[in-house]
Amino acid sequence: MGISIANAALRLVSGAFILNSGINKLRIDEASAAGLQQMASNGVPQMAELEPAVFGKILSVSEISLGSALLLPLVPSRLAGIGLGAFSAVLLSSYLRTPGMTESDGVRPTADGTALAKDVWLAGIAVALIFGRRAAKKIKKEK
């Protein structure tokens, strides 16, 4: 078992970023929480059913939990990657389903969409964490 330097780097970068984001949202005001909730509900409509203050707390705690899981080496990389994959899927779904975020082709970001489109790097890290170790073992066996 153990963690590779590559996985450690991926987990450190994404974990620190997400943990910091969650800590910054601990004292989010209701208006800001409502704005984030509106954007999130474009990707996952059920989120609109929550009160904005509750949504803000859930989002903050979720980001702190995910960031911590990525930073803690005792959490398996594959498990941390699955959590990161779910988180990035919601972000990308919100990006793709929010009017004005993409060009007419529905994929490339507009100027307004660039801030959310950049979160595709989290999806890439999730894929690397979930499948990276398996691929490395396969290559090692072939040699």
Score class of each variant (00 low, 15 high):
57 K>V: 13
81 G>K: 02
110 T>M: 08
3 I>K: 06
75 V>P: 09
98 T>D: 00
89 A>P: 03
49 E>P: 00
27 R>H: 15
38 Q>R: 15
21 S>V: 04
81 G>W: 01
45 P>A: 14
31 A>I: 12
121 W>N: 04
104 S>V: 08
68 S>R: 02
122 L>M: 15
16 A>N: 10
23 I>P: 05
10 L>A: 11
130 I>M: 13
101 M>K: 02
39 M>P: 02
74 L>V: 13
7 N>D: 15
124 G>E: 10
85 G>E: 01
29 D>R: 06
98 T>C: 08
118 K>T: 11
122 L>G: 10
112 D>A: 11
76 P>K: 05
4 S>K: 07
43 G>D: 12
105 D>N: 15
23 I>K: 08
103 E>W: 02
23 I>D: 01
9 A>S: 14
142 E>S: 08
13 V>M: 12
78 R>E: 12
47 M>R: 09
115 A>P: 00
83 G>S: 04
75 V>C: 05
103 E>R: 11
93 S>P: 01
6 A>H: 11
35 G>V: 09
35 G>I: 06
31 A>Q: 15
82 I>K: 04
41 S>R: 13
141 K>M: 09
9 A>R: 11
122 L>K: 04
131 F>M: 10
6 A>S: 11
105 D>K: 04
10 L>T: 09
91 L>Y: 09
7 N>L: 02
126 A>R: 03
28 I>T: 14
35 G>W: 06
120 V>D: 00
37 Q>A: 09
8 A>D: 05
42 N>L: 07
1 M>Q: 14
38 Q>K: 15
103 E>K: 09
115 A>S: 12
10 L>N: 12
22 G>M: 09
135 A>R: 11
5 I>T: 15
107 V>R: 06
123 A>E: 02
77 S>Y: 01
19 L>K: 05
121 W>H: 12
47 M>A: 13
101 M>Q: 10
2 G>E: 15
65 S>K: 01
109 P>L: 05
139 I>Y: 05
48 A>I: 07
108 R>V: 01
87 F>C: 03
10 L>C: 12
15 G>M: 12
5 I>M: 11
70 L>E: 03
121 W>A: 12
128 A>E: 07
33 A>L: 14
80 A>F: 08
34 A>D: 15
115 A>R: 09
13 V>C: 10
132 G>A: 10
22 G>I: 10
46 Q>R: 14
53 A>F: 01
78 R>D: 06
120 V>C: 05
139 I>W: 05
18 I>K: 10
11 R>G: 12
40 A>N: 10
28 I>K: 07
86 A>N: 06
87 F>E: 04
43 G>H: 11
63 E>R: 02
115 A>L: 07
59 L>P: 00
29 D>M: 03
102 T>A: 04
138 K>P: 00
18 I>G: 13
18 I>S: 10
103 E>G: 00
66 L>D: 02
70 L>G: 06
129 L>K: 05
98 T>P: 02
138 K>Y: 06
25 K>L: 11
19 L>Y: 13
81 G>T: 03
139 I>G: 00
82 I>N: 01
71 L>I: 04
108 R>N: 14
54 V>G: 00
78 R>L: 08
84 L>V: 01
10 L>E: 06
72 L>R: 03
81 G>C: 04
99 P>F: 00
141 K>I: 09
4 S>I: 02
129 L>C: 08
16 A>V: 12
103 E>N: 12
136 A>S: 13
103 E>A: 08
98 T>N: 00
16 A>K: 11
114 T>W: 01
